[in-house]
Nucleic acid binder design. Structure first.
Lengths: 232, 232
DNA sequence: CCGCTTAATGAGTGAAACTCACTAAGTCAC
DNA sequence: GTGACTTAGTGAGTTTCACTCATTAAGCGG
């Protein structure tokens, strides 16, 4: 025995522990490097395993990403229920939804970018668990709108899905500069402005339309009466 | 010479011709397979060259994509100017912008997906020529809004950039299902609905001044009538 | 028709995801 | 306690790409 062979002591762990360790390492590397530039070997090294081990727990790099993102998303959803339920009035609730989404993007920029870029555009996103979580996330918005309609605050002929797309689409598009690392994302102001912009289109048409025409007719009547009075 | 060596006849072409041939092949393969799954070898084969040749004309796969997409984008922009200029009124113009964008997505689904997924999210998009083209594309919207403000049709305190993000963000988000190959994209209906949804938030608050003067006059009339009734 | 420029080649390189035959750690029956 | 068994974990491949580079020869100017 000429060379000192370094003997690696292998300790076997439960599936749960290893999986958690790999997912934690993957989250960090993905968030740090992005999907493309994250190497499975780096994730493996950080998790303290060898590359092949990851494939015992995850089908592919994409599967790993999806499950890591799903774990994060579940955390987001957990404390979302209470938040919405506690707020009264459609305007306040929409403001909260918009604000909350903006704040999430602001505080979790790296993960949101991963979600927008790698997860949501993947071909098998639709059939994935994380898509299901996303539906649950956006369903809050749909519920708020439907309750607003039921309460008579909001136009009943609204395309609720389009409003949902408007809210999330606008916010995402608006956030890209920030997500790209350029410029800031002003959460409060943007939330205010978006709600102000959106709300008039949601509310029932001002009943003053009818009122105005009636009043205008009365105005013309007054004019005639005034003239008639002058004639006397 | 025992074996018949197949001699490839190499014809040299001008830079322009080769570049065009490669870009055309790349466009087709990218549109067909998407960026990831498009192999440089396949593009080379379709263009009738060998892989290495592509790198004489393009720095990298991403450079090839960017220049192919820029070529397509320039075509889009060419017949955009006239379209907008011919339309009068902010509402009609916005309807046109929205409709046009939806129609482009509808008719160029594969390329739009490429643009959204691969180009716009790339880290060096901001410094690229195609980003410049995109700015020119969206500037139409900004101009329409500013002209609407100047004409007194639209609120002057509007965050024009946010409205731009709203239009493009909403449309993109709304189109993803279609781009993913699931479901249809109803161009006309969506254009109508989005404009209806957006417009109330843009318009100046209805000038109820007229209403107020009319009501005041009616008040005075009532007073006179009451007095007259009392006098009798 | 010679020689120069450079378009084009294609074998080769490196990196990264993924595979698989094998090793040995932990467990359980006895 | 010990042998048999299950399976976590290994690490040396394999494959598939994007990308490189030394070499070749097509076309052109003098």
């Amino acid at each position: 025995m000429s060379a000192v062979t370094q003997k690696r002591v292998v300790t076997r762990q439960s599936r749960e522990q290893r999986e958690a360790a790999i997912m934690e390492a993957a989250l960090r590397v993905f968030a740090d490097k992005g999907y493309e530039d994250a190497a499975m070997s780096e994730i493996a090294a950080l998790a303290g395993v060898v590359e092949g081990t990851i494939y015992k727990y995850f089908d592919s790099k994409q599967d790993l990403l999806f499950r890591v993102m799903a774990g994060w998303y579940e955390g987001l959803l957990r404390d979302y229920d209470q938040g919405v339920a506690a707020i009264q009035g459609t305007r306040n609730r929409l403001r909260y939804i918009v604000w909350r989404h903006l704040r999430t993007i602001h505080d979790h920029a790296a993960l949101c970018r991963l979600f927008f870029r790698e997860v949501r555009t993947a071909s098998d996103y639709y059939a994935s668990h994380i898509h299901d979580l996303n539906r649950r996330y956006t369903r809050f918005t749909v519920r708020i709108l439907k309750e607003g309609i039921a309460a008579g605050e909001i136009r009943a002929d609204l395309n609720v899905g389009l409003v949902r797309d408007l809210i999330y689409g606008t916010i995402e598009h608006h956030s890209w500069n920030y997500l790209r690392g350029l410029g800031e994302l002003t959460v409060e102001d943007t939330a205010d402005q978006l709600v102000e912009l959106l709300l008039p289109g949601l509310l029932l048409p001002r009943p003053s339309a009818e009122l105005e025409t009636n009043v205008a007719r009365l105005g013309r009547l007054v004019e005639r009466l005034e003239k008639a009075a002058g004639d006397v």
